[in-house]
């Protein structure tokens, strides 16, 4: 039975504990200035600016072009892809975040 297989699989597996300096590290982090949040706000602002710019460009140029439904679709997909790439590029990966906080601590 899978129940027994799982019990056997996990029976001898180590159950990790928090490290001894968890509380000390946490105390240091909560006492440090909230600089990561300022960066996050900057990232959010950049994204908002991007979208405002994109909408402004659309509003300015839209009356002068007549697009077929296919072209509208391609444009929408392109905008979505660019937005997604921007989002991923601006989001710091965990390793960068950990190193950044270690440097600022």
């Amino acid at each position: 039975m899978i129940h027994d297989d799982l019990s056997r699989h996990f029976a001898n597996r180590e159950r990790p504990q928090l490290s001894a300096d968890f509380a000390v590290n946490l105390r240091n982090r909560v006492r440090s200035p909230d600089r990561p949040s300022a960066l996050a706000a900057l990232r959010r602002s950049a994204l908002r600016l991007y979208w405002l710019g994109a909408i402004a460009v659309l509003v300015v140029y839209w009356p002068d072009v007549s697009l077929t439904p296919v072209e509208v679709g391609v444009l929408a997909v392109s905008v979505a892809i660019v937005a997604r790439v921007w989002q991923r590029a601006l989001r710091a990966p965990p390793l960068v975040r950990v190193l950044r906080e270690a440097l600022w601590r």
């Binding site: 490290s19 968890f22 965990p94």
Partner: peptide, 20 residues
């Protein structure tokens, strides 16, 4: 399993988030 260090990072993040 094998990711206790990451789990500890997450736990730290959680409590910092709760603190703020």
């Amino acid at each position: 399993p094998g990711r206790a260090r990451y789990a500890e990072d997450v736990a730290q993040d959680v409590f910092v988030h709760v603190y703020r």
